[in-house]
């Protein structure tokens, strides 16, 4: 019985180690603003130096997909894109961020162009 418990603990530790090696703290900031007649879409991801970041931004204009940007980086990723906006239209910016294959949940932003 003791052997089974010991082996189980070793297996659990072995399974946990790779996960601990992969998962670290990471931050992501998403931002949507209007400058003149442009919608400025920003996504700023910071992770540990060896972390692979894969991110994309999707811009919706009145529930219609109008732009999609993809980018990758190691450690940090800064995305800053613009799209010609029309006054009165509602824009939604959706973020998709993965750090070392693990998805990072970031709330989408919705604003109406002034």
């Amino acid at each position: 019985m003791k052997k089974i418990i010991a082996i189980s603990l070793v297996l659990i530790a072995m399974l946990a180690l790779p996960a601990m090696a992969l998962e670290t703290a990471e931050t992501a900031t998403g931002d949507l603003r209007f400058s003149g007649s442009s919608a400025i879409c920003g996504l700023y991801v910071t992770a540990s130096p060896d972390d692979e970041i894969v991110a994309s931004m999707i811009l919706m204009e009145n529930n219609r997909l109008v732009a999609r940007w993809n980018d990758t980086g190691t450690g940090t990723l800064r995305m800053n894109e613009s799209y010609p906006a029309t006054s009165g239209n509602r824009y939604t910016l959706i973020f998709d961020v993965e750090v070392d294959g693990v998805s990072l949940d970031l709330d989408s932003q919705m604003k109406t162009c002034p």
Partner: peptide
């Protein structure tokens, strides 16, 4: 401007 920005921190194993 919290109406235009969002921040997420993933802190698994931290």
């Amino acid at each position: 401007d919290p109406a235009s920005s969002a921040l997420s921190v993933n802190w698994e194993h931290c």
